[in-house]
C-alpha cells in the first residue's frame, strides 16, 4: 500500500513537452505577433531613419540626430508638398463626405426604383483599378482643355472617396435600431426633428469614420494624383519623384508624425465613444 502511494507523486512533465503544449495552445497568438511584426517592420524602419544624420540621401545609417525633427521643412519642397496634400485632403474629404452621406441615406433609408442600379454605380469606382480611373479622367480634362493641377486633383479624389464614404455610412445606418426613430415619432417629434435629434447623432460616428477614411485615402493617393496633378507636387508624389536620388530624412519625419497623429486621433475617438456608451 505505502509503496503505491510513493509511486503516485505528481508526474513531472518533461520541459520539452511543456514547451510544446504551450506553443500548441498559443499558436495563434504567436502567429499574430509575427504578423504584426511584419506589418510594422517598414513603419519602424521609417521612424528609425527619421533620426538619421544622413544629409541628402537617407540610404545608410550615419549617426543619430534630432535635427530632422527640429527642422522638418529643412529639405526643399517637402513642406509645400505636404501643404498641398493637406489642402487637397480637406477639400476632397469635405465634398465626398457630404455627397456620400446623402447617397448613403437615400440607399439605406428609402425603397425606390433604381436602387440596385444605384448600388452598382457606387460599387463600380471601387472595382475600377486606380490607373484606369486616373487615366480616363485625365483624358476627359484634356478633351475639355483643362490643365491638370490642383482642382482636377481634388475632383479626382472626390470621385474615389465617395464610394468608400457611402459604404461606411450605409453600414452605420443599417445597424441602427429603427425602434429609436419610431419612439421619437411616438413622442410627437416631426420627421425633421427626429432626423436632427435622433437619427443624425446616431449616424454621426459613422460619418466621422467615413471622413477619416476619405482623408487618409486622399492623403496617401499616388496613382490617380500622378495622372491629374500636372506640375503640382503632393507628398506621395514628392517621395516617388525623389526616390531615385534619395529621399531626405525630413520625409521620414513627416511620415512618422502623420502616423502618430492619426493613431492619437483614432485612440481618442475610441475613448470618447466608449465613454458615451457608458
Amino acid at each position: 500500500m505505502s509503496h503505491k502511494i510513493k509511486d503516485a507523486t505528481i508526474p513531472t512533465i518533461p520541459l520539452g513537452a511543456r514547451i510544446q503544449r504551450w506553443v500548441g495552445r498559443n499558436l495563434i497568438r504567436i502567429y499574430a505577433v509575427i504578423a504584426f511584426t511584419y506589418l510594422f517592420i517598414p513603419v519602424a524602419y521609417t521612424f528609425a531613419f527619421s533620426f538619421n544624420d544622413s544629409g541628402k540621401s537617407n540610404l545608410i545609417w550615419k549617426g543619430f540626430t534630432l535635427g530632422n525633427w527640429q527642422n522638418p521643412c529643412g529639405a526643399p519642397e517637402v513642406c509645400s508638398a505636404l501643404g498641398n496634400s493637406i489642402k487637397i485632403g480637406f477639400l476632397a474629404t469635405f465634398f465626398s463626405t457630404i455627397l456620400g452621406t446623402m447617397i448613403a441615406f437615400a440607399i439605406g433609408r428609402h425603397k425606390f426604383k433604381g436602387r440596385s442600379t444605384s448600388n452598382l454605380l457606387i460599387f463600380l469606382p471601387m472595382a475600377t483599378p486606380e490607373i484606369v480611373m486616373g487615366a480616363s479622367l485625365l483624358s476627359l480634362f484634356l478633351v475639355f482643355k483643362i490643365n491638370p493641377g490642383f482642382w482636377p486633383t481634388v475632383i479626382a479624389h472626390i470621385v474615389f472617396c465617395i464610394s468608400f464614404v457611402v459604404v461606411t455610412v450605409k453600414a452605420r445606418i443599417a445597424s441602427l435600431d429603427p425602434r429609436l426613430e419610431q419612439a421619437a415619432m411616438d413622442l410627437y417629434a416631426n420627421e425633421f426633428e427626429t432626423f436632427r435629434r435622433v437619427t443624425l447623432p446616431l449616424v454621426a460616428p459613422g460619418i466621422a469614420g467615413a471622413a477619416l477614411l476619405a482623408f487618409s485615402l486622399s492623403f496617401d493617393d499616388f496613382i490617380i494624383t500622378n495622372f491629374n496633378s500636372g506640375t503640382l507636387t503632393t507628398f506621395p508624389k514628392f517621395i516617388y519623384v525623389s526616390a531615385a536620388r534619395g529621399i531626405p530624412a525630413q520625409a521620414n519625419v513627416i511620415g512618422s508624425a502623420m502616423f502618430f497623429l492619426a493613431l492619437t486621433i483614432v485612440i481618442v475617438g475610441q475613448l470618447v465613444n466608449r465613454r458615451k456608451v457608458r
Binding site: 506589418l39 517598414p42 513603419v43 524602419y45 521609417t46 531613419f49 517621395i239 520625409a251 502623420m258 493613431l263
Partner: peptide, 24 residues
C-alpha cells in the same frame, strides 16, 4: 487595440513603406 494596429501602418505613407522595404 489590435484592430487599430492593423490599420495603423496605413498612416505612414505607403510609398515610404514600400521604399523602406526596398532598403531593408
Amino acid at each position: 487595440v489590435l484592430l487599430v494596429l492593423v490599420v495603423a501602418p496605413f498612416f505612414t505613407s505607403f510609398l515610404l513603406r514600400t521604399i523602406a522595404w526596398k532598403q531593408i
